[in-house]
């Protein structure tokens, strides 16, 4: 169990992590989600005692990391797969880590076997591909057979095979009763990996809930309407206090989106009552990405369009684009 209480980290005038409190429970994978620069890595470094919090505290089963005896037997972490000496072999890298916590030499062979690096363990770590480095990092995290595991963006830059491997692996670790905290800015990945979500933006906690709750709460539904009498329908719907927006969809001309929890029936009836022709009337369920965008929209640090695209890292179809502004109902 990881517990953070009022965790704060300031660098001069910049607040990287702001009064952050959350819990990570054992037996499941908890996703640590936030846009780039939200303070995920800083938080993880504070959990591991690498950075000192400006205020607040974070403990692992009630103990600060810096007070742990042989910490690798309690907490394993992969923060950056590149943190190895390129001229040192994977086996030697794991050997010094094992020696530091008085772990038996057999533990090195054990973790090499688990991550499937046994055959290349004698090669210099600098020759490894990103996927192999990531596996080496995971081997290091597992070395002391710890109850708590931290992974910072473990799937970044991996090929699909590697991503599936890591995802399956996380589930296995959690099923063994371990506490697993995985950070990511990829919501789609988290939806498949994590059962619980701790969502942060600009260093502040946005929500802590199950992944399902997060999606349900945040993603409203939208109705997409195509009609030749666009303006007329819009004004009719405005009279019913509905929020609409008109967008140019590729190949479809102008399209009307009606937001809020409502059914296609209501709009269809309203159109019929005013004799408006409809070409399309479809319900669009909010995606995880939308939920994420709506929740963190006002906390994305850089509002440039590119950055928002980078945050979701997904092909958001033009008809589901959501403004990055705050939503009152959240």
């Amino acid at each position: 169990m990881i517990e953070a209480h009022g965790l704060t980290k300031r660098y001069g005038a910049t607040v990287a992590v702001d009064n952050l409190s959350f819990e990570v429970k054992p037996g499941k994978v908890t996703g640590f989600l936030g846009p780039n620069g939200a303070g995920k890595s800083t938080t993880m470094r504070m959990i591991l005692g690498l950075d000192t919090p400006t205020a607040g505290s974070v403990t692992i089963d009630g103990t600060r990391y810096r007070d742990l005896h042989r910490p690798l037997t309690k907490v394993g972490a992969l923060l950056d797969a590149k943190w190895v000496h390129p001229n040192r072999s994977a086996r030697a890298h794991l050997a010094w880590m094992a020696a530091s916590n008085k772990l038996p030499k057999s533990s090195v062979d054990r973790v090499l076997e688990i991550v499937g690096l046994t055959e290349v363990a004698g090669k210099r770590a600098g020759t490894y591909s990103l996927g192999m480095s990531q596996r080496l990092g995971i081997a290091g995290a597992l070395l002391g057979d710890p109850e708590v595991l931290l992974f910072d963006e473990p799937v970044n830059g991996l090929d699909p095979e590697g991503i599936v491997w890591i995802r399956t692996f996380m589930h296995r670790l959690a099923a063994e009763g371990r506490t697993v905290l995985v950070s990511s800015h990829l919501l789609s990945e988290m939806a498949l990996t994590a059962e619980d979500l701790v969502v942060i933006g600009r260093g502040r906690l946005i929500s802590q809930s199950t992944t399902q709750e997060f999606v349900d709460r945040a993603s409203g539904t939208t109705v997409k309407v195509r009609t030749p009498q666009l303006d007329q329908l819009a004004s009719v719907l405005h009279q019913q206090q509905l929020v609409t927006r008109i967008e140019d969809a590729e190949g479809e001309g102008k399209v009307l989106f009606v937001e809020g929890d409502l059914t296609t029936d209501q709009i269809g009836e309203a159109a019929a009552a005013h004799g408006i022709v409809l070409h399309e009337l479809t319900m669009q369920r909010g995606s995880l990405e939308q939920a994420f965008m709506q929740m963190t929209g006002d906390s994305v640090q850089y509002h440039a369009h590119d950055e928002i695209a980078a945050v979701t890292h997904l092909d958001v179809p033009s008809n589901t684009e959501v403004a990055a502004g705050p939503k009152e109902d959240n």
């Binding site: 470094r45 591991l48 005692g49 690498l50 990391y65 810096r66 007070d67 742990l68 910490p71 690798l72 972490a77 923060l79 950056d80 590149k82 943190w83 190895v84 000496h85 390129p86 880590m97 530091s100 916590n101 290091g140």
Partner: peptide, 22 residues
């Protein structure tokens, strides 16, 4: 300094949080 350059100093401090000792 190579430990700082390659980031292994963080792995070292993670393995032995009693930094002065390490």
């Amino acid at each position: 300094t190579t430990e700082y350059r390659f980031g292994t100093i963080r792995t070292s401090f993670q393995a032995v949080p009693q930094r002065a000792q390490m």
